[in-house]
């Protein structure tokens, strides 16, 4: 039986009916057509489905839609304004992506990292991304992308 939920998704209130077994990732992809969040593994291993729940990175393939009732979800679609977000820009500038499938999850996890640790070392970046698998890049340029974003975000902070 479907039950009603009310969720703030990318700052917009969404009221909908879901089966209790509906995973958050399917709510986003199938019901709301926010297809930037991807499914890569089904076992909460690969991180392609990473979104922010009340500001924290979570794997939306292992969260039920009913669990986010009354809470706030941000997806990759919320990251860019009129220009790319510095993290998105970092991935583009440093060629931190190839096929693009893991990229939204990488970016959302990076955002979580840079919020809690604005100037991470290479080691900290690698550890922070251990829950996100990329099969294309060998991570080399992803590390550089995160460093680019960290630098840019820190400069922005200084200018404020």
């Amino acid at each position: 039986m479907k039950i009603p939920i009310k969720v703030l998704i990318n700052n917009k209130e969404v009221k909908t009916m879901v089966e209790p077994r509906q995973l958050l990732v399917f709510l986003l992809r199938d019901q709301l057509r926010l297809t930037g969040t991807h499914i890569g593994c089904d076992t909460s291993s690969c991180g392609a489905c990473t979104v922010h729940l009340d500001g924290n990175a979570v794997k939306s393939c292992t969260v039920l839609a009913v669990q986010v009732d009354g809470r706030s979800v941000h997806t990759i679609e919320s990251m860019a304004g009129s220009a790319l977000h510095p993290i998105q820009e970092g991935f583009k500038e440093e060629h931190g992506l190839q096929c693009g499938f893991c990229t939204p999850g990488m970016i959302m996890t990076t955002a979580n990292l840079l919020r809690t640790c604005p100037n991470p070392s290479e080691h900290q970046i690698r550890e922070a991304l251990e829950g996100n698998i990329c099969r294309c890049t060998g991570y080399h340029n992803i590390i550089k992308a995160v460093q680019y974003a960290a630098d840019k975000l820190q400069k922005e902070v200084k200018h404020v």
């Binding site: 991807h38 790319l84 820009e89 992506l97 499938f101 990229t103």
Partner: peptide, 11 residues
């Protein structure tokens, strides 16, 4: 990369 980094790839 504009489409891929913003979640607008079409798979």
């Amino acid at each position: 990369d504009k489409r891929f980094t913003t979640g607008n790839g079409r798979y």
